Simulated scan of single mutants.
Amino acid sequence: MTLPPNAFKIALRERRPQIGLWVAMADAYAAEIAGHAGFDWLVIDGEHGPNDLRSILAQLQALQGSPSEPVVRLPVGETWMIKQALDIGARTLLIPMVDSAEQAEMLVRAVRYPPHGVRGMGSGIARASRFSTIPNYVAKASDDICLLIQAESRAAMADLERMAKVDGIDGVFIGPSDLAADMDFPGNIEAPEVQAAIEQGIATILRAGKPAGILTSHESLNRRYLDLGATFVAVGADVSEFSAALKRLRMKYKPDADTGETPTSGGY
């Protein structure tokens, strides 16, 4: 048995724009719907979405026949969490809160088998190898594993060039909401200072030879980032889109209902 190559990783390498969606409902049926909506990549969110290992597994299974590449965002970049996510079949990982090149190097080792890394040798009973039906899985695994790191603090932006140059990092994703908060602009990613840092960050990542990514729910900002050369751009979240669609339906019949809704910052 063989698996198709990671088309998302190939597209990043070739700098072909990839449009994505955050999948935070923690539900396999909802993920399957998103998988047939035509996005290039879908983030199964284990950091802020109510996901655990089994719900992530169910969504990976639901998306197996989808044209979209599932990207698993873990809560933190712990080696044991990375091992489990890879073993259940995740091929693309997004690791939040990476602040230094040294931390990025540790993450690269976590996704690789010895002697090049520290990933545990459990593929024989893992979904990743389709339960030992993929010949030479251990030798070939790193070819299709795509490792993305999130830069979302002033410390990360200060070390961004070194982080992006780490061999084995396939892309650097700027987290606008946490970056804005760390810059003393919580909930305001549109602040000129934050936008200047993001634009400079995209330029730094590209100059280091890696694809840059970002997420907002602002169409004008997303198009601006694409124009600046960002390759993988997520343009919204299933939870927000579902909620907005339901509100639009309700407004047709109860336009004066008090929902207590508050504006969001446009990032996740």
Rank of each mutant, 00 (worst) to 15 (best):
residue 11 A to H: 03
residue 66 S to P: 10
residue 149 I to T: 09
residue 45 D to A: 00
residue 4 P to F: 01
residue 243 S to H: 12
residue 202 I to L: 00
residue 206 L to E: 12
residue 206 L to V: 06
residue 2 T to N: 11
residue 156 A to G: 05
residue 254 K to H: 14
residue 34 A to T: 00
residue 25 M to I: 06
residue 72 V to R: 06
residue 147 L to M: 03
residue 26 A to V: 01
residue 46 G to N: 01
residue 152 E to L: 01
residue 8 F to S: 05
residue 117 G to P: 03
residue 48 H to I: 04
residue 249 L to S: 14
residue 136 N to K: 14
residue 242 F to G: 09
residue 9 K to H: 04
residue 75 P to S: 05
residue 223 R to L: 15
residue 245 A to N: 09
residue 27 D to I: 03
residue 100 S to M: 02
residue 188 N to I: 07
residue 128 A to S: 14
residue 27 D to S: 07
residue 158 A to I: 03
residue 9 K to D: 06
residue 2 T to K: 04
residue 41 W to I: 08
residue 119 R to I: 08
residue 23 V to F: 05
residue 111 V to L: 12
residue 24 A to F: 02
residue 129 S to L: 13
residue 187 G to R: 00
residue 224 R to Q: 10
residue 239 V to L: 14
residue 180 A to P: 02
residue 6 N to I: 09
residue 121 M to N: 05
residue 254 K to V: 15
residue 106 M to G: 11
residue 256 D to W: 14
residue 261 E to C: 08
residue 148 L to K: 10
residue 88 I to Q: 05
residue 26 A to C: 09
residue 23 V to P: 00
residue 94 L to E: 13
residue 161 E to V: 11
residue 55 S to K: 05
residue 111 V to H: 11
residue 166 V to A: 00
residue 256 D to R: 11
residue 19 I to V: 12
residue 144 D to A: 12
residue 184 D to Q: 03
residue 31 A to I: 01
residue 80 W to P: 01
residue 254 K to P: 02
residue 104 A to E: 12
residue 259 T to V: 12
residue 83 K to P: 09
residue 189 I to F: 13
residue 26 A to T: 00
residue 196 A to T: 01
residue 138 V to N: 11
residue 35 G to P: 08
residue 77 G to P: 06
residue 140 K to I: 11
residue 93 L to I: 10
residue 102 E to D: 15
residue 263 P to E: 09
residue 184 D to H: 07
residue 117 G to V: 13
residue 28 A to F: 00
residue 236 G to Q: 04
residue 189 I to H: 13
residue 235 V to Y: 09
residue 60 L to M: 04
residue 183 M to Q: 09
residue 267 G to W: 10
residue 224 R to D: 09
residue 162 R to Y: 07
residue 90 A to W: 02
residue 124 G to N: 14
residue 48 H to R: 11
residue 233 V to P: 04
residue 129 S to D: 10
residue 82 I to A: 08
residue 240 S to A: 15
residue 86 L to H: 11
residue 114 P to W: 01
residue 44 I to Y: 03
residue 105 E to R: 15
residue 39 F to I: 12
residue 5 P to W: 03
residue 199 E to T: 05
residue 206 L to H: 08
residue 117 G to K: 12
residue 179 L to A: 08
residue 93 L to P: 10
residue 51 N to Y: 11
residue 18 Q to D: 02
residue 4 P to Y: 00
residue 174 I to Q: 09
